[in-house]
Write a protein that binds this DNA or RNA. Structure first.
Lengths: 237, 237
DNA sequence: CGACCAATTTGGTCAGACCAATTTAACGGA
DNA sequence: TCCGTTAAATTGGTCTGACCAAATTGGTCG
């Protein structure tokens, strides 16, 4: 194991990809563990480990007689990243759904953060915003994106909502990884970004949780629009 | 395997519980696979399967030299149900966070469902609401709760947001299971429930997505309040 | 064609072996 | 006594082959 991945993990990834590409329909039986061991030139133990990982993801149900593929929509959120990474470019619908959902969660944590922040946290939010404003609305660099995401993550921390944090763990790392891999960066205009940062600043200064939440919702609505356009023009071009 | 659970799953559950109960701190090394095999009177293979499940949950990181416990807040949402089920009664904060987050997601899907529904779906929503109104605000029965949850799930289906669906898979089944196990049912007054159903009906009839979303948000805010009170009075009593 | 039974296949688990990577212990020198 | 180096021990990663319980498949008979 020199490349940091176990064989069982590699097998699970390969099978997961087969399932996500619908090479098996819901209800179909997977090949037997013995057959998979031959296919992957591995021991049955490694295959069993892989299979139990897929079962935990909700992708299959295992019982004596064979493992059966389950409906995709009954699976865990942890399959989102792999789904997005299936093709060279992600599905427009799925990206939109992700942004919409992620936006709703961030809007919630922003609201709660503004409502709950200690004076110190409040100041730290404003300081971070001031740093973001230095980009003058130009969020296209990796650094700017990273700082913006860190800011959003800080809001989650201040909101102290573990449930959102746990969901975010499954959503964020996977999504960002796949977006970067696909080389796609949705571009908001500098005017839009500047406006959002400015209004967010005012909302936080005024401890106006509703305004802050609205600004974030608007940011994600803009981002959804820009993403859809970017993806569609890539598909046309 | 006569009781529907594999040994590896039982071992994973036991270790997960140890970790969630903070018997190990973040950074601590778990006992070796060989020691765990002795402890659980199992083979090392079964232990390895259990360990790889815990790694997928983000609870541990496995490498030669030993598996290390990871910070809880870096884990997957799939640990929420087990966290809620640790004690006889769930943590007030965690239940509140769950309801807040779940409420935000349902509010989003309600908004989208109202915006997107086909005439047939629209009619089906109204029909389901009419059925719910027959309870005259009395949601205390298992049947009423079940029908209400089915209605909310139908909204998710109509909204066609796979991301929310996948998150819901991790949230819903676990949470409801744990709540029922703890025998706790938060009680909203009949007047509150009737009012919510009535206004939701109007909003859907008018295809007013914002109003529908607001009604759902309000329902969950009331539910959060009632839950906190119910849990706190149980702790006091 | 359907029911029943036997054979085969499948998952569940075990023990023991071996190799690569990490951790711990021991030794020597300053 | 402390630090650095090396060796030994421990740990994870994987394999093979065996056996048992549960499910599936195939064959036979009415």
């Amino acid at each position: 194991m020199s490349k940091g991945h176990t064989l069982s993990h590699d097998i699970a990834v390969a099978l997961r990809t087969d399932i996500l590409r619908q090479r098996y329909q819901s209800g179909d039986r997977l090949p037997s563990e013995r057959d998979l061991a031959v296919r992957f030139s591995a021991s049955r133990g490694a295959v069993r480990e892989a299979i139990s990982q897929l079962e935990q993801l909700g992708l299959i149900q295992v019982q004596p007689g064979g493992a059966r593929v389950q409906p995709l929509e009954a699976a865990s959120i942890a399959i989102l990243g792999p789904m997005l990474g299936l093709d060279e470019q992600p599905s427009v619908d799925l990206v939109d759904q992700f942004l919409q959902t992620f936006g709703a969660l961030v809007s919630l944590t922003t609201r709660e953060a503004v409502a709950k922040a200690t004076p110190e946290e409040h100041q730290r939010m404003l300081t971070a915003l001031a740093e973001l404003k230095k980009y003058r609305g130009d969020f296209s660099s990796t650094e700017a994106q990273s700082n913006w995401l860190q800011f959003l993550e800080y809001l989650t921390t201040v909101s102290n909502n573990l449930v959102v944090k746990l969901i975010g763990n499954d959503l964020r790392a996977q999504f960002i990884g796949q977006m970067l891999k696909s080389g796609m960066k949705p571009a908001l205009s500098k005017a839009t970004v500047s406006s959002i940062l400015k209004r967010l600043d005012v909302a936080i200064k005024d401890s106006d949780k509703n305004a802050a939440s609205r600004v974030i919702t608007e940011y994600f609505d803009e981002l959804r629009l820009a993403s859809s356009q970017a993806l569609e023009s890539r598909q046309a071009g």
